[in-house]
Write a protein that binds this DNA or RNA. Structure first.
Lengths: 264, 264
DNA sequence: TTATCGTGTATTACATAATAATACTTGATG
DNA sequence: CATCAAGTATTATTATGTAATACACGATAA
């Protein structure tokens, strides 16, 4: 363990968290040995830590297969999160109204490092499962929400982000060309909104407007996803964008308090 | 620490989890000393553990106030949970359809010990914030979902549950009389649905139907919340119930796999 | 100003509690 | 029924987490 030679750092706790992080969308249940493999911990450590997490109710254990799964406590953590995030409480009623007016999927995304994370999702139409689940993190550069938030940053930061932030392929249409992305971001600087197409899901279009803090920087965005089969860029700008901007603007002013965060 | 004198139990990890659990709806951000007070740990321990959680990205720290808050990682845990719960994937598209048809708030609740926990929520109308947030745990006996699930249990278990499970006051109308609750549960045994009124929120009515596993026991319920101002029991039974039951029945058959869980 | 408090941060000597190795148990597979 | 992999249990050793304590800082008030 090459972690901090720091007496204020509890290695066992950190290792336990590694077990928790071993679960994701493609690893939804894990055996002891899989856990060991994924965390890089030896069998003994994995055994002790997994046992502790099970006893403490953080991991369910299937008595037949002996495999571990996230417990309901993982949902309770989301519950606690929601009460701690002042944005959500402000935004929720407005998002519900918006989703009713538009009759299309409405999302609330927050900036989280170089990713965005979906904090609230209000699906209106059948859609892919992954598009209905909160807590999904996506590379900011590949999403309309990320780009429109980035567009509120000073030019220097924008440049650095477009050059350095990660990108990943999700569909054959995911933009990998950073110049292309730069153009999209700079458009968003000018327009105050961003539209993306087929970045995450084929034939999906997304439009996003920023929720701007008192310093002029956005830290979140309201986003709407529609099918490219029934919508065009022009129709989105004409019919969705105005309501989306109203909603985002209605949420923004409530934010005097800025949350300055300690670096880790 | 009176916890297990067990070599397979890592106390430091368990203590770290206590810090996480210190956050809830009425404690959304905590200072070091508040954390110490709420967890019962001494200052040193709290300091080390909180620091570790911060370094590992589980707690954000406001650099001004020095207070800790749940980080985005708490939402990511919900994301991982969703992929691990086979019910959610099955139910989601049907719930979306249902919510569109009814134009009323639709919830998916799972049994979790003697509580129910909201796993998915699709708000359609403006409502209280707490009613839009997933991960909320409520005493099963005080909810239509809990009662209708309980109604699928054998008589002996039903009796024990009605006598022993916890109840809490939420509104002046929350039923505290266990005989009253027993009657409600026994009605649900007969009817296959449960309706409650004003249990969690005044002037709110809720109707729930069970999602039944292969053994005949329900482990979840589909629930719909409406305003008592515009709905009556009769109208709910006539207009909402049939669609609710269709949805719940459509979800049930997919469940061959039963998840037997190890006791902690 | 100086004093006192509360709170957050840092350091250290010590022994507890986490560790890694190993042995045991189980059940699946050929 | 022999073999192997995976889960479970036990133990001696010392690394690691611990509690005590000291320091830093800001707020409040005399």
């Amino acid at each position: 363990m090459k972690t901090k030679q720091n007496t204020l750092y509890v290695g066992s706790l950190a290792k336990g968290l590694r077990l928790l992080r071993a679960f994701d969308e493609s690893h939804s249940e894990l055996s002891l040995s899989e856990l060991a493999a994924r965390t890089g911990l030896d069998k003994s450590a994995t055994q002790r830590l997994a046992n502790t997490l099970h006893i403490e109710g953080m991991l369910d254990k299937d008595s037949g297969t002996r495999r571990f799964r996230p417990s309901h406590a993982w949902l309770e953590m989301a519950y606690a999160y929601y009460w701690s995030d002042p944005l959500v409480g402000q935004a929720m009623p407005k998002l519900i109204n918006l989703s009713q007016e538009l009759a299309e999927t409405v999302n609330l995304a927050e900036m989280s490092g170089d990713h965005i994370i979906y904090v609230s999702r209000l699906p209106c139409k059948r859609t892919y499962f992954a598009a209905t689940v909160i807590g999904r993190r996506l590379p900011a550069l590949s999403t309309s929400a990320g780009r429109v938030i980035l567009a509120t940053y000073p030019e220097e930061e924008r440049r650095a982000a477009v050059d350095g932030w990660p990108i990943r392929v999700f569909t054959p249409n995911t933009t990998l060309d950073r110049e292309n992305i730069r153009a999209s971001v700079e458009n968003a600087v000018h327009d105050g909104y961003a539209i993306s197409q087929g970045q995450m899901i084929l034939n999906e279009m997304a439009v996003a407007t920023p929720i701007i803090g008192p310093d002029g920087r956005a830290f979140a965005a309201v986003q709407c996803s529609v099918s490219a089969h029934t919508w065009t860029r022009e129709k989105i700008v004409a019919e969705i964008l105005p309501k989306l901007q109203d909603a985002a603007n209605a949420i923004s002013p409530s934010f005097q308090s800025q949350r300055a965060l300690d670096g880790r």
